[in-house]
Design a protein around this nucleic acid. Structure first.
Length: 552
DNA sequence: GTTGGAATAT
DNA sequence: AATATTCCAA
């Protein structure tokens, strides 16, 4: 009956099957004890000789979980030798002699308990506790092979209990249920104080993490304020078909969306969770979606409470789909009017907070601006309040581009970071891509003004390729040249606004406020062209302004 | 007190 | 780098 670790792994009906080494000189007594133990489905190996027993365990002929050793009253030496040499084995000493010194000696020598004879069933029933105690309190290195399976099985049991019923799942309770007779402990003399042992620190730690209410509270806390803001509207509005189905659980939509990231590391408190839209809606959008889907490991909350408990905060994972909704909302509002609360409103994503949106919006704008030269950004900022543009309309060449500064480097597309939640089109609307003006690009956005003067191509094709996708979408690509739609999403998916009107606005703005930097896509007219235009309108040029450079 | 947004923290 | 949190002005 050699017991291997595998046999014991997944020890479902622990402590049944516990293997007990019984060292008892008196065969009658041994039989009685054995019978009682076996009635509890313990496996008993009886030894009448101390050395035999020691030999057995030293040779590892059989794996024992606990030993019950009789201290002979006649021979003082009997039993102690075993006790001293079987440190790894939880050893219960027993004797019909209740001499205090003997009991103390046993305990001092490492016995886990001293039981007075006769050994009743009650006394024997719970001896498994010592096994558990040892299994959990022995250092990993000191843990004997025979106890490892015990530990694992107990952990398994505890885990099962905690998964099924979280609120009352303290390990001590569970183990009490197993024993069903913890009151017997009081009968035990010397070692009764050990019985709290099974509630080991490790287990308590785990058990404490099981407070579901706390988890829930936390979830609510982080969102309650914001959720309240738009609860009324979000609960009744259904999201687009592909999108979030939080509506199915209006109360705590995020519960099913929490992505757990455990961290039981050294500090043991870095676990973080992520709130994300329904994982199902994270379907590929483009060829770059490998990244996205690979990140799609959001756990459909299986109530592993340790996770909840260890998490510190909820993190919104801006998946492609979520970002898409975000962008849609922003586009709908217009960049300059896209404020967190409105975006949140339009997104109709339950669980999402204004803070979440604000943070994302911040990043969104940041990314957007990073694509533009600084001056252009300023320009854009200045225009934000005055021009009702749905987005920065003009591509912004560097303000000093005409002064000979080198063109900025090719700006990577937002989100092109290889991040799991981003892809090349993450920040830009679908269809957005580099735009490389061509030589044939001509633009005459302002009637009455020569194209040469106002509407020169931003840059030669070999230079700066930054015209906003807006222009792109607006059909500013000239001569029927199609923009390089790197992505399959049709531009109309997100972009529909009157391009000409917008262009006019921008140009008028630029003209009416000449002190401001020109918007992207515009460059100052050359002196010659200005003079020519003046001349064409019958205005005589000033004498001293007859010359000028002609950047082109 | 709420909000938006930048700054800062994690 | 991404997201959350904090701070502050409106």
């Amino acid at each position: 009956m050699v017991c291997t670790a595998n046999d014991l792994h997944g020890w479902k009906d622990f402590p049944k099957g516990l293997r007990i080494l019984l060292l008892e000189r008196d065969s009658t007594s041994a039989s009685e004890i054995r019978a009682k133990l076996e009635a509890m489905d313990y496996h008993v190996s009886t030894f009448y000789d101390e050395n035999e027993a020691l030999s057995e365990i030293s040779n590892r002929l059989e794996v024992f979980h606990v030993a019950i050793v009789e201290v002979s009253t006649s021979s003082r030496q009997c039993g102690f030798k075993f006790l001293e040499n079987a440190k790894d084995l939880p050893t219960i000493m027993t004797s019909d002699n209740q001499c205090l010194s003997t009991m103390m000696k046993c305990i001092a020598l490492g016995a886990v308990e001293f039981l007075c004879k006769p050994l009743s069933e009650d006394k024997l029933r719970n001896i498994w506790q010592h096994v558990v105690h040892k299994a959990f309190n022995a250092g990993a290195s000191a843990l004997s092979e025979s106890l490892k399976p015990v530990k694992e099985s107990v952990e398994s049991i505890v885990q099962l209990q905690t998964d099924n019923g979280r609120h009352d799942s303290r390990i001590s309770i569970d183990l009490e249920n197993i024993s069903r007779s913890s009151d017997n402990d009081r009968e035990q003399s010397a070692g009764s104080d050990k019985y709290p042992a099974p509630s080991t620190p490790q287990l308590k730690q785990g058990a404490r993490l099981l407070d579901d209410g706390d988890c829930q509270e936390h979830t609510n806390c982080s969102n309650e304020k914001e959720s309240g803001e738009h609860e009324g509207e979000s609960k009744s509005v259904e999201t687009s078909s592909e999108n979030l189905n939080e509506g199915t659980q209006p109360q705590k939509p995020e519960r099913g969306l929490i992505k757990q990231e455990e961290d039981f590391g050294a500090n043991g408190s870095n676990g973080e969770s992520k709130v994300s839209p329904n994982p199902h809606d994270r379907r590929p959008l483009s060829s770059t979606d490998g990244n996205v889907t690979s990140s799609n490991k959001a756990v459909v909350l299986s109530d592993t409470c340790e996770n909840k408990a260890t998490r510190k905060k909820l993190k919104v994972e801006w998946t492609t789909e979520l970002h898409k909704k975000f962008v849609q909302a922003v586009e709908q509002l217009g960049v300059d009017q896209a404020i967190p609360s409105r975006v949140l409103e339009l997104m109709k994503v339950e669980g999402l907070t204004r803070h979440n949106v604000a943070s994302h919006l911040q990043k969104y704008r940041l990314h957007k601006r990073q694509m533009m030269p600084r001056e252009a950004d300023q320009r854009w900022q200045n225009h934000r309040d005055s021009v009702r543009l749905k987005r920065p309309i003009m591509a912004y060449p560097p303000h000093h581009y005409n002064h000979g500064l080198p063109p900025p480097p090719v700006y990577p597309m937002w989100g092109q970071t290889g991040s799991q939640t981003t892809n090349p089109q993450f920040w830009g609307p679908p269809g957005y891509t580099w735009w490389r003006p061509t030589e044939s690009w001509h633009w005459n956005p302002f009637p009455g003004v020569h194209v040469d003067a106002w509407g020169c191509p931003v840059l030669p094709a070999t230079q700066a390729p930054y015209l906003s996708y807006t222009q792109h979408m607006a059909g500013f690509h000239i001569n029927g040249k199609s923009p390089d739609y790197r992505y399959s999403m049709p531009p109309s998916s997100f972009e529909h606004y009157p391009a000409d009107e917008v262009v006019d606005k921008v140009v008028k703005e630029a003209i009416s406020k000449p002190w401001l930097p020109l918007p992207l896509g515009l460059k100052p007219p050359s002196t010659d062209s200005v003079l020519a235009e003046l001349s064409r309108q019958g205005i005589s040029p000033m004498p001293h302004c007859s010359k000028g450079s002609k950047p082109r």
